[in-house]
């Protein structure tokens, strides 16, 4: 049931975030800046484009040498980090 929710939930990246294609992120509401590694940048772009976890997983496992179970672990950890940094809009 939980996994089901997880799959259907589409993350919303905080609005107004300025994300450059070098992986530099600026949060205009707090003034904080961040850097993403290439995989992190790719994930953020996929999430922003409205893709859910299954779609993202298909994309990533097709491109990179990682299996779906391992990827899910890193994905969830990444999302948790974004949430801790208040870069995810949970109310959207």
């Amino acid at each position: 049931m939980k996994a089901q929710q997880l799959n259907e939930e589409i993350m919303k990246i905080k609005k107004n975030l300025a994300i450059s294609d070098t992986g530099f992120v600026f949060d205009p509401s707090t003034g904080d800046s961040y850097t993403l590694n290439p995989v992190g940048l790719e994930l953020i772009q996929l999430i922003k484009s409205g893709q859910d976890l299954p779609a993202i997983t298909t994309h990533i496992t097709g491109k990179y040498d990682v299996d779906a179970i391992a990827f899910e672990r890193y994905y969830l950890d990444f999302i948790a980090t974004l949430r801790q940094m208040h870069l995810i809009d949970d109310n959207a």
Partner: peptide, 11 residues
């Protein structure tokens, strides 16, 4: 410029 800060911090 923020662009310059980005430049120095990421590159």
């Amino acid at each position: 410029e923020l662009r310059e800060f980005e430049q120095l911090s990421t590159h």
